[in-house]
Amino acid sequence: MTLAIRARNLVKEYDDVRALDGLDISVEAGEFFGLLGPNGAGKTTFINILVGLAHRTDGEAAVFGHDVEAEYQQARDAIGLAPQEYNVDRFFPIQEVLEHKAGYHGIPSGEATRRAEEALKTVGIYEKRDTRFDWLSGGMKRRFMLARALVSDPDLLILDEPTAGVDVQLRRDLWDVINRMNDAGTTILLTTHYIEEAERLCDRVAIMDEGCKVEEASPDELMDRGTDRITVSMGSTPATAPELNLSDVHDARIEDSDLVVTAARGSSVVPDLLRQLEAMGYTVTEVDIERASLEEVFVDMTRTGSAVEA
């Protein structure tokens, strides 16, 4: 399988700060890959190295097999970037900005105009095509950032917090666009602090902290490592939680006349749990499993005493 992104032992130092500390990440072509991490984890630094806005100190980074510095033209031609910060040319109406961006990618004038119009229609701001960026609303600005990333029809779409600060409806609209791109074969690298976004969209997720990759797995696999909450209603509620002999159970207690059990891989624990309770003479009337969220797993993995994004 072709790798859309390959980073090996990637290091980036700013004076005495080590922003990336031997980062290893591989993203397969066509994959929807999420990058999570607290502020300062190195996510944006990693993206900047890929697109040419930062020089690596050491290590390797390649996009579709092209080294991001030695073969920067090929690497950058494959990338569409929607950065977190607004960095848009304020001198021109937004359609012209898109035409320029397409032109930089070698797309001839007439075709650039067609693609710019198509990109604006895709994100739903075509009627604002003659407006300058500064005059767009906050939501429209976010839509435009996505349009600019799409206009060169990239093989790799890098989205750095693409839905930061937008309302729920717009977020879902943007998800639809991004999902369609991914369905059409575009590789997506997404950083987000909306864990729900990563759960819903990503095939795989890497969690970064202090310049390193802490974990990498599918959202489901990561959630399996979290602690599920199993609520058991019984015919007669004991005064204290029964002694359970199950290896994955972390805790059991009585809450509001229900037995609440916290355990890893809750769904696989439940059959044994029910058998033990019945063996103890309890009658179970209802069982509810509340899965751990990716957010909880993320917070656990990156807990350093400092504030985290999620």
């Binding site: 990618h105 990239p154 093989d155």
Partner: peptide
């Protein structure tokens, strides 16, 4: 770099 070489699905 040509349009069809790498960029562009």
């Amino acid at each position: 770099v040509g349009v069809a070489s790498d960029g562009g699905n």
